[in-house]
């Protein structure tokens, strides 16, 4: 056990409910730095909710999440946990970058403006510097010529790549992807997956909710299968995807493949 770095994300017995719906029912997962973790599972199984809890778009009802060793959402004061302020939560969110299924680019900003918005407004970096870095990021996702395009003027694949660049501009330690290719026309999926592959190769810690089993098999070190708010099965892709132990996993995988 010596020499192994501590996990960068630890979720312990996380529960989250929406009224009567138990979206997460005691989810525990620990992720090492530099690792690509894929999450698969049927619709409504709580995959998005889990990612949204990790970057505190949703508040968890029970359990605990540590990111980089820091408890998120709360601070221990004596024997009690105090909820953090809006500003403190905003600061904690800087550790994670999020890529959404529907891109969620800021509609009123060009590609470049989308990318520099966080660095300039939140991190208070000099605009000139932010622009230079944004141009590097645009080059990295292959969209240098789209710097002045508004989201509406770009294809879904291009928007998603700008969204990835926007998240990367904040220099997060962990990138969260919530079905990043599910809203794309089939011929555009490849270009987004290529960017993600490249990112994984660069050593970024990534948690990816996806139905792209090929991508999961190729890039992920670990895959979890979720169903009804629980982790049903976890293991290397060769096991979970090719030789699943649980009936529900098998059912799901054959359903996705057909």
């Amino acid at each position: 056990m010596t020499g192994r770095p501590p996990p960068i994300v630890v979720a312990h017995q996380v529960t989250k409910r929406f009224n009567s719906v138990r979206a997460l029912n005691g989810v525990s997962l620990s992720i090492d730095p530099g690792m690509v973790q894929c999450i698969i599972g049927p619709s409504g199984s709580g995959k998005s909710t889990f990612l949204r809890c990790l970057n505190q778009i949703e508040k968890i009802d029970g359990g605990a999440i540590l990111i980089d060793g820091e408890l998120i959402g709360y601070r221990q004061v004596g024997n009690a946990l105090r909820a953090l302020s809006d500003a403190e939560i905003a600061r904690q969110r800087l550790a994670t970058g999020m890529v959404f299924q529907r891109f969620n680019l800021f509609h009123h900003m060009t590609a470049l403006e989308n990318i520099i918005e966080g660095p300039v407004t939140v991190l208070r970096r000099p605009r000139r510097e932010a622009i230079a870095e944004a141009m590097d990021l645009l080059a990295r996702v292959g969209l240098t010529d789209k710097r002045d395009s508004y989201p509406i003027e770009m294809s879904g694949g291009q928007q998603q790549r700008v969204a990835i660049a926007r998240a990367l501009a904040m220099r997060p330690r962990i990138m969260l992807f919530d079905e990043p290719t599910s809203a794309l026309d089939p011929e555009l999926v490849g270009e987004v997956l290529a960017v993600m592959r490249d990112l994984a190769r660069s050593g970024m810690t990534m948690i990816v909710v996806t139905h792209e089993l090929g991508f999961a098999r190729e890039v992920a070190q670990d895959v979890v299968f979720m169903d009804r708010g629980e982790i049903v099965e976890q293991g290397p892709p060769s096991q979970v995807l090719l030789n699943p132990q649980h009936g529900r996993t098998r059912e799901f995988i054959s359903a996705v493949l057909t």
């Binding site: 949204r52 970057n55 505190q56 778009i57 905003a90 600061r91 969110r93 800087l94 994670t96 970058g97 999020m98 959404f100 969620n104 680019l105 800021f106 918005e117 966080g118 407004t121 939140v122 991190l123 969204a163 926007r166 998240a167 904040m170």
Partner: peptide, 8 residues
């Protein structure tokens, strides 16, 4: 949500 995710 996107704004929150970049720490606003």
């Amino acid at each position: 949500e996107a704004a929150k995710s970049i720490g606003m």
